[in-house]
């Protein structure tokens, strides 16, 4: 991903890189795997496959570069190739419906009271996990990579193999959807 040339690491160097550059990210990788599969066994298999693949191709990894992004990219590819087909996905978002809504005037209506902003802020914490999990996987992925893992748009583009403009627009849609779900939740509690 970041280096086209192959390196020839000795077995000791390989183990050193694996231990010091790959393993420190294992909790982030596992957490991400769990959030896209919703299943501990699948997450475990996915992480195992990711790390073993990373090790197998360790010569194409440049020591000291962005191991975290490299691992996330391998995980994403493994997921698409093998897991996505068999894992159950949550309900798909109807893109047309979403786009119609976000192109309508409704989105432009501002929230008009401070009280409501405070109420929403207070309550979103409780509901954010449910709201995030209910998003389509592509939307969920960009939010996790950006907000939870702190990747830049450029890193996300490399991990996901999509242009940076697509990262931006997908994130934008994902945030609108998430916000909308949280807003519905706040409304249902009577904060209007």
């Amino acid at each position: 991903m970041y280096c086209k040339n192959s390196n020839f690491y000795s077995p000791a160097e390989k183990e050193h890189i694996f231990e010091n550059e790959f393993l420190p990210h294992i909790h982030s990788i596992y957490n991400f795997a769990y959030r896209i599969t919703f299943n501990e066994d699948d997450a475990k298999d996915l992480v195992q496959e990711t790390y073993l693949k990373a090790f197998r191709f360790i010569d194409s990894f440049q020591k000291g570069t962005n191991a975290k992004a490299w691992l996330f990219r391998i995980l994403k590819n493994s997921f698409i190739n093998e897991f996505r087909k068999k894992s159950k996905e949550p309900a798909k978002v109807d893109y047309q419906e979403v786009e119609t809504y976000y192109n309508s005037d409704e989105i432009d209506q501002p929230i008009t009271s401070d009280l409501r902003v405070e109420a929403i802020k207070e309550k979103i914490g409780d509901e954010v996990s449910v709201a995030l999990n209910s998003l389509d996987i592509d939307f969920r992925t960009v939010i996790i990579l950006c907000d939870l893992e702190g990747f830049t748009y450029e890193e996300m583009a490399k991990i996901l193999d999509i242009p940076i403009g697509t990262v931006r627009s997908r994130l934008h849609r994902a945030r609108n959807l998430l916000r909308d779900k949280l807003k519905v939740y706040a409304d249902s509690l009577g904060y209007k």
Binding site: Y30, A43, V47, V117, I120, G125, V128, L132, D147, R179
Partner: peptide, 18 residues
């Protein structure tokens, strides 16, 4: 609100450990 959502994602999401 956007900032609060980002903060909630960072703080309230359960972090699964390997």
């Amino acid at each position: 609100i956007e900032q609060a959502i980002r903060e909630a994602i960072k703080k309230k999401l359960e972090k699964k450990e390997a």
